[in-house]
Design a protein around this nucleic acid. Structure first.
Lengths: 211, 211
DNA sequence: GTGACGATGTATCGGTCCGATACATCGTCG
DNA sequence: CGACGATGTATCGGACCGATACATCGTCAC
């Protein structure tokens, strides 16, 4: 999962570890806590060994201090052609881990780089998974209610509500996707411009109820 | 976390691994996916080595087949006095991991065995943590909006809504807790009537399903 | 009757990720 | 001028997952 996210982020700009973590936190803040360095740095080395990223030379800008203090620290990575290939491959193949909480969140965060058919497939797979979880919770709340204390039941109830809410959210996204519109899209023209390629969603109406 | 859950469950009844996993899934279904055996069995051995659980002898019921096929399989564990002590200790000390998604969920699932002061402390710690996450998401949606594509923004928006909802839920639970009531409390006198108690649920009736 | 299948049941292995820790530089503010 | 917080790289032990293997038992279709 982290591999996927790193490859995706480095496609927007070369970065060093610290920066990568900050961007990752900003992009995935809704999904998971900040990534640990104990995972990040080993993963970076793994990706480098696989040839998917390389160390970039720190554009000296001429006015830089030459080599007085040997310039330690600050290892900037950039993605390679093989890395982009790998990323595309990871997007295309949707295994079961694509639909769990973290996996889905990471994939969703890079939907701007994902083609519409794959987006639809992932959204539907996620919906199916959440529906299954929902049914499980309903079963427990219904059939096994007398075996559970009030706190455990309240937990299940809250979880069930979250499931129902997420299914509704997914339905909306799927409907939007099928009709070719972008997700919410209030800020017209500002957001999707940068990532050069892959069909940042078409213009699009905004349906919203937000305060 | 798993250690905590196992100790908590075994306090209700002795169980073998498979059963433990099913109960765990039922009790924590709202929180996390089913626990993996690759974690469960090593953990059971660890807990046994620490002296917190022991193998129970499978009540032979006299009418049992003696030792024809050496009776492999089915290792039933029960909690020891030291195990109960350990569980109480784990409840009392609330570290930072007590407030993350999984940690909070597991603690909450055993609130019936937790004293009111600790319950309150945990709920408030969780609320604080979610409020922080919420502020982070608001920041990203506000200050960094133009840097994000429409899908990423939609993800944050959905996450923000979930945070707001959970804070409201926690507020309610905290208010209930302060006023001395059980959580939702429709079933008066049944489950949560005396959550203060520290032993298995009220009546002494043995609910068990052994075939 | 038999054999395919699903539930029950225990167990290991490789790999991902986390949390704590260590260490070094830099700018700023009291 | 020294404390502090942000920036920055790195390692280590441990928790947990997913795949896999293997064995028993009951049931239902053929």
């Amino acid at each position: 999962m982290l591999e996927f996210a790193i490859l995706g982020l480095l496609q927007e700009a070369p970065m060093h570890g610290y920066e990568l973590r900050k961007e990752l936190t900003a992009k995935l803040g809704a999904i998971r806590a900040a990534i640990s360095y104990g995972t990040l740095y080993p993963t970076l080395r793994r990706l480098q060994a696989a040839g998917w990223i390389t160390e970039a030379n720190e554009t000296p800008t001429a006015s830089d201090v030459p080599a007085l203090t040997s310039r330690r620290g600050r290892v900037v990575y950039e993605i390679t052609a093989e890395g982009k290939e790998r990323f595309a491959q990871l997007i295309a193949q949707a295994g079961p881990e694509t639909y769990d909480d973290t996996g889905f969140g990471v994939h969703f965060a890079f939907f701007a780089r994902t083609d519409q058919a794959t987006r639809l497939r992932i959204l539907e797979g996620r919906r199916r998974k959440i529906e299954e979880r929902r049914e499980g919770l309903r079963d427990v709340l219904g059939r096994a209610a007398e075996r559970l204390d009030a706190y455990t039941m309240e937990l299940q109830r809250h979880g069930l509500e979250a499931c129902e809410r997420e299914v509704r959210w997914l339905e909306e996204l799927i409907a939007n996707e099928r009709s070719g519109r972008a997700p919410t899209a209030p800020t017209t023209g500002a957001a999707g411009g940068r990532p050069e390629d892959n069909s940042p969603p078409p213009p699009g109406e905004s349906r919203k109820e937000r305060p």
